[in-house]
């Protein structure tokens, strides 16, 4: 189960971001953007910055 913990967390966050952005306006747009930016940040951190 350990293998799937972070993928599931990031997957749920992405799905929530897509829905929140679609269903609500204004401040929620920024929340959605930040939530969807998280997988990007994780990919960049582990993929390139952490040596």
């Amino acid at each position: 189960m350990k293998i799937w913990f972070w993928p599931i967390v990031l997957g749920l966050l992405s799905a929530a971001a897509l829905l929140v952005g679609l269903l609500f306006d204004n401040a929620w747009d920024e929340v959605a953007t930040l939530m969807l930016a998280l997988p990007v940040g994780v990919a960049l951190w582990f993929g390139w910055y952490r040596r």
Binding site: P7, L10, P39, A43, G47
Partner: peptide, 16 residues
């Protein structure tokens, strides 16, 4: 490893 890492963290977005 990069293929697996990036693939799994972007999976929901890419599928949608």
């Amino acid at each position: 490893d990069l293929h697996n890492l990036i693939g799994i963290v972007t999976v929901v977005w890419a599928l949608v």
